[in-house]
Design a protein around this nucleic acid. Sequence first.
DNA 1: CGCCGCGCTGAGAGCGCTCTCAACGTTATC
DNA 2: GATAACGTTGAGAGCGCTCTCAGCGCGGCG
Lengths: 335, 335
Amino acid sequence: MSGISDVARMAGVSKSTASRALTGGGYVSEATRQRVLEAARHIGYVASTNAASLVTGRTKNVGVIIPFVNRWYFGEVLEGVEDALLACDYDLTLYNVRPGTPSRSRIFEHFLARKRFDGVITIGLDPSPDELDRLLSLDRPVVSLGAQYDGVSSVAIDDVAVSRLATEHLIGLGHTRIVHIGGERSADLTGTVHGRRLRGYLDAMTDAGLGAETLHVPSEMTLPGGYAAGVQVVSNLRSRPTAISAASDEVAVGAIVAARRTGVQVPAELSIVGVDGHEYAEMFSLTTVEQSPREQGVAVVELLMDALGGRQESTTALLHPTRLVVRSTTARPRT
Amino acid sequence: MSGISDVARMAGVSKSTASRALTGGGYVSEATRQRVLEAARHIGYVASTNAASLVTGRTKNVGVIIPFVNRWYFGEVLEGVEDALLACDYDLTLYNVRPGTPSRSRIFEHFLARKRFDGVITIGLDPSPDELDRLLSLDRPVVSLGAQYDGVSSVAIDDVAVSRLATEHLIGLGHTRIVHIGGERSADLTGTVHGRRLRGYLDAMTDAGLGAETLHVPSEMTLPGGYAAGVQVVSNLRSRPTAISAASDEVAVGAIVAARRTGVQVPAELSIVGVDGHEYAEMFSLTTVEQSPREQGVAVVELLMDALGGRQESTTALLHPTRLVVRSTTARPRT
DNA sequence: CGCCGCGCTGAGAGCGCTCTCAACGTTATC
DNA sequence: GATAACGTTGAGAGCGCTCTCAGCGCGGCG
C-alpha cells in the first residue's frame, strides 16, 4: 500500500508538494509536477479518496435513488446517469427503493444518513413527506428526474402533454370511443407519472367534447399488466372501443399482444398508441410519443454538477422535448 | 455536524468508550452503553463510515461490475444483489461496463483502482486477460455471477445443460429439424453464455444422432434480435424447421412474435422453447427452462460475505438448479 | 496480606490525506 | 538599495474515527 509520502520521497519533495502536484491545486513548478507524476506512475500510486474525503468533505460519489432497475425507462435513465457521472469522475452508489419493500425505509432512515455522497439523484421518486424531509435534511444537493417535488431541481418531460398528444392523435383520426389503459387512479392526478398521463388523456377527451365517453382501465405499468388490461378491453364486446391510449409503451405492447391473440386486427379494428419510445416500439410498429431517458439522465447529472459547483441558480425544472412518431398501430376507425 | 466526541461528552465518557459502545467491540458496562446510545440518538449521531474506513481499512461498500442494466436477467440479479447487500449493511457501487464503451476501460483502469470497496461482484462478466489481471491485483475478494473464470468463486447455472434440456424436450416431442437462435458463434463455446447454450444445443442434437441437421441463426440476445432471427427462420420456406431452440426467453419471445406476425401457428407449425424464466414467459405461454437470477444474486453475496469474513474455503463454483416448465409453445410436429 | 486477574475506562497515537501558514529565493517597483 | 510581490516549497495541524495500551478498583486465591 503505497501512500503519498512514498511518492513524495521518491520525487524528492515534501508531502505537501506531492499533494499539490497530484490534485492540481496551488503553485507547483512544472518540473516538480512532472517528477511527482512520474514517481506516482512508477509505484502505481492511487490516492485514497477516503482519506481525501475526510479532510475535504467531498466524496466524489453520488447516491442514486431508484424504485426499479428492471423497467425500460429506469434502466435507460440509470445507464445515462452512470455514464455522465463517470465522465465527471464520480462513483455511483445505487439505492433501490422498490415501493413497499421493507428495505425502502431502511434506506431512507439508515443508509442515506451515512451521507457517503456529495449529492443525490432521485429517479421517478414520489417521496412521502417523511422521506422528503429526510432527503432535504441531508444537507446535500438533491436533483430529481422524472418527477417534481418541493425544493428540488428536476429534469422531466411533460407527462400530461405527451399523453394528451397521443390521445389527440387518435381523436384526430376520427376516434371517439377511446379507452385509457394505465396505472391506478388516485385522488391526486399530479403526483405520479401514470396519474399525469391519465390527466392528459382526460384533458384531451374533454377538450374534444368527449368528456362523457372517457374510460379508464387500470393496469400495472408493465407489459403483462397491459396484456391483462388489453384482454379486458377486447373481450368487452358490447361496447368495444375503437382505440386505446396507453400510459406507456410497455402497456401498449401488452395490449397489442392481447389484441392479436384474440384475433382483433390492429389497427383495422383497434388503434393503439403508447408513450415512451421503448426499444420494442419499432418492432411492434407502435405509434408512440418518444422521449429520451438516456439524455435526461445526462441532463440531470449536469444539474447536479452545477449544484455541487455552487452554480445553482435557485430551483429549476427542465422539461425535455418529446415527439409523436406515427407508425402502424393507429389508423382511422372503420366507419 | 456532530461527531463522536459530542456523543462522548454528552454521555460523560471518553471518546474511546463511546466508540466501543457504538461499534460493539470490547468491554463496556451495560449502563454506559445505554447512556451512550441514548446520547447518540438524542443528537442524531451517525458515524462517519469514511473516518472509520480510514483506520479499519473496511469500507462497508461493495463494487458491482455489470455489463447491462437493462436486460431482464441483469436487472433481476442486480435487485437481488442490492437487497442482500443492504441486509448486510453494505452499500452498492455500480460499475456499468457495457462492452465496447470507452468507459469500460476507464472503469477497470481508473475507478476500480480507487478501491472504494471491500470486495467486488462481477455479473456475467467475461473479462479480458488484462481486465482479469487488474481485478485480481486489487487485493480484494472477487466473486462472479453467471460466469466462471480463473481464481474466482462463482454462482451460476449450467448453461450447457439448460440448453441441452430445452433441446431434448423438442427432440423428445419428435422434432428433428430444430434450429438454434442465439448469439454469435465464436471459436470458444465456453467463454460466453450464448456460446455455452449453443453448445448444449449441439450436444443434444449430436447425442440424438441429429448432428448433421444442426442449424444456428445468430442474433442479439434481445427481443428485437430474436424477432429478426425469427423472421429469417420463418421466411425460409423451403426447409422450414419444425422447432426453434432459443438461447434465451427474450429471443424466444421475439421469435414467437415474428411467427405470429407471419401467420405461422405456434406450436402447431412451429414449436419454440426458451431458457430463463423471463417475466414475459408466462404471458406468451412459453415453454422454457427456468432459473432464478434473484436468488443467485443473494447467493453470490453470501459467497462474498464468506470471503470477507475469512471463511473462504478455496475457490468454489456453485451451480444453481433449473427446471423445465412446459407451457404451450411446444407440441409434437405435424406428421 | 499481597498478588493476580477481571471488568471497565481513558489517554493518545495514527489511518492517509489536504490545507494553512511561514519561509525562502528571485524578480519587479519605487 | 530597500521594499514589495511573486512563485515555490516544507512543516505540521487536523479531518473523525478505531484501537492499543495502561490504569484503576475489586474480588478471589495462595
